[in-house]
């Protein structure tokens, strides 16, 4: 049993979550396998991995918002001990945004173009808190916009009248509207220029301290994670590569993929560049060879890696990694 589970009951506990994308007559794509992690109150967990490794899929699965082709085939998602995957659709809907809110990848299209920003924020408050009074709503919306650094009098403008950075701020204000326990931020800064990226991340860091938010921050940028997160989950091709404290990840990474990632980002305080430095491409999920998903690109690959998928080994109670080298550091040489 891991250390957290014993001592404090986590706010969110995800266990062995697996997701398929079906596309008959083709075999289903194993988009997520056996994802296990916890999120404590006030904790910020970074989810890191290349494009297509299933980060968004994981976040959508947590909120049960997968697209039609997505199937949760196994696992459990518990929020304060309540199994979310067992709730009926209505209860789940009532819990969305109230307990878990989400800032989407690419806020350009995440706001409805034909309704004002204020209306869209007020809608969440009206729905979850039953506030109907226009003046109260207007005041609350104004406060929220103020919180994210937008002048309250811009609430009656439409998204197209906002700049990209402001739209992302408005999205954050909307996520905070019902004081959720958890905010999921799925690559909140992609498509923004570097200056604005830094501002948005600073805003998230400030809000987190101010409101004691629990944050799930998805990114493929290790620099961002270093600045903002307590713990890090590194994903590769739909499976867990490594899960540990941010310090451990940076100072003693156990998984070859994490190590490669860090080499691609020599200076974690300077984000921006992409993960192109790792040779090869992520696996095709509907046509997986047996064995470790990282094997085709792994510099330490040995015979056993091609025969079976490595389990997730606990190195210390707070550090685990899915690689045979953890159990057998000599690898093929042994």
């Amino acid at each position: 049993m891991s250390h957290e589970v014993k001592n404090r009951s986590p706010l969110l506990a995800v266990n062995h979550l697996s997701v398929d994308y079906v596309d008959p007559p083709h075999p289903p794509a194993a988009a997520l396998r056996e994802i296990t992690f916890t999120l404590q109150r006030g904790e910020a967990l970074g989810i890191v991995g290349e494009s297509g490794c299933g980060k968004s899929t994981l976040m959508l699965a947590l909120m049960r918002l997968l697209p039609a082709a997505g199937r949760i085939v196994a696992g459990s998602v518990r929020l304060d001990g309540v199994e979310l995957l067992d709730l009926d659709e209505q209860t789940m809907a009532a819990l969305r945004w109230k307990r878990i809110a989400m800032i989407f990848q690419g806020a350009m299209n995440a706001l409805n173009p034909v309704r004002t920003v204020g209306e869209q924020i007020a809608e969440a408050i009206r729905l979850h808190e039953g506030v109907g009074d226009r003046r109260v709503l207007a005041r609350r919306v104004g406060e929220l916009l103020d919180l994210v650094g937008i002048a309250a009098n811009r609430r009656d403008q439409y998204p197209f009248q906002y700049s990209g950075g402001m739209r992302q701020r408005a999205m954050i204000a909307m996520a905070l509207a019902c004081s959720p326990d958890i905010v999921i931020a799925d690559e909140p800064t992609t498509a923004l220029d570097v200056m604005i990226q830094a501002q948005i991340l600073q805003l998230l860091a400030d809000l987190r301290r101010q409101l004691q938010l629990s944050i799930l921050l998805v990114t493929h940028d290790l620099g961002i994670v270093a600045e903002l997160c307590d713990r890090v989950l590194v994903m590769y091709g739909g499976v867990m590569a490594e899960y540990a404290d941010a310090d451990t990840i940076y100072n003693s990474p156990a998984h070859p993929y994490t190590q490669a990632l860090l080499r691609a980002f020599p200076d974690p305080t300077r984000p921006a560049q992409k993960l192109a430095a790792i040779p090869g491409a992520p696996p095709r999920l509907n046509d997986l060879p047996p064995g470790c998903r990282f094997a085709p690109r792994c510099p330490y690959v040995f015979a056993r890696c091609h025969m079976a998928a490595p389990p997730v080994y606990a190195i210390t109670p707070t550090h685990s990694a899915g690689c045979f080298l953890v159990a057998n550091p000599q690898g093929g040489a042994a």
């Binding site: 989407f104 299209n109 409805n112």
Partner: peptide
Amino acid sequence: DYILTAKAKGLNHFQILKDHALKN
């Protein structure tokens, strides 16, 4: 994407159609 946002906000199908989809 904004339909997904609306769904994440906890709106039901009727509300999503009425308030977010139809006008567009």
